[in-house]
């Protein structure tokens, strides 16, 4: 089913989302990938504050290509989520409600999603040109020295994703392949 949601998320919107839903996100989301997650983890270990407020927010696993003049961002598709798995349960326990990436997650992440009533979306990997058109503005807000891996605040409009793991723990990757498996 096609749905439209607004970010930051609220509990009501998340409850409605089911694995397999095609969802258009509008609002504010944040980009962070490997190196930014590592830094956030180190900050938490030292008891320092994070550069972004996680509460009800969505993190997009993204390292964009450079923007041409006059454009907010370059190519901007998802990166593989599993590399963030090590850091994710802790962020979910701190209030993070959504993630956009591609690929499978660990059992620990799935459990943390259910425990915190959160959601994992997949964007189409390798559709970075198309996805960049749904990003209206982009601003580096932390870890600028990390280049493409810096944390960005992104304003998105009708950003297309698919719900892979919903707040009840239904997992589209597990069920969808079975449906077409003939071997």
């Amino acid at each position: 089913m096609d749905k439209k949601i607004h970010a930051p998320l609220d509990a009501g919107q998340i409850r409605e989302l089911r694995a397999g839903d095609y969802v258009y996100i509008s609002g504010i989301i944040y980009s962070a990938r490997d190196a930014a997650h590592k830094r956030m983890q180190e900050a938490l270990d030292k008891g320092e504050p994070l550069p972004i407020d996680l509460n009800n927010n969505i993190i997009y696993y993204l390292g964009p290509s450079p923007a041409r003049e006059g454009r907010p961002i370059g190519s901007a598709g998802p990166t593989t989520a599993s590399r963030m798995d090590k850091y994710t349960p802790r962020l979910l326990d701190l209030g993070l409600k959504g993630m956009i990436g591609k690929g499978k997650r660990t059992k620990e992440v799935q459990e943390a999603i259910v425990r915190n009533k959160a959601v994992y979306f997949a964007a189409v990997g390798g559709a970075g040109a198309l996805l960049s058109k749904r990003i209206l503005s982009s601003e580096v807000i932390a870890y600028e020295d990390l280049g493409t891996e810096a944390i960005r605040r992104l304003e998105v409009e009708n950003f297309p994703v698919v719900v892979v793991i919903d707040s009840e723990g239904n997992n589209l990757y597990e069920t969808a392949a079975e449906k077409y498996r003939r071997i």
């Binding site: 397999g20 901007a76 598709g77 189409v124 198309l130 058109k133 493409t148």
Partner: peptide, 27 residues
Amino acid sequence: LGRQILCQLEENLQIAAQDRIPICQDT
């Protein structure tokens, strides 16, 4: 859903060529 995704990928190739945006951000 698979067809929908493949159509997105076709559109992605058009946008990449027309608007000079790399096909994928991982170049």
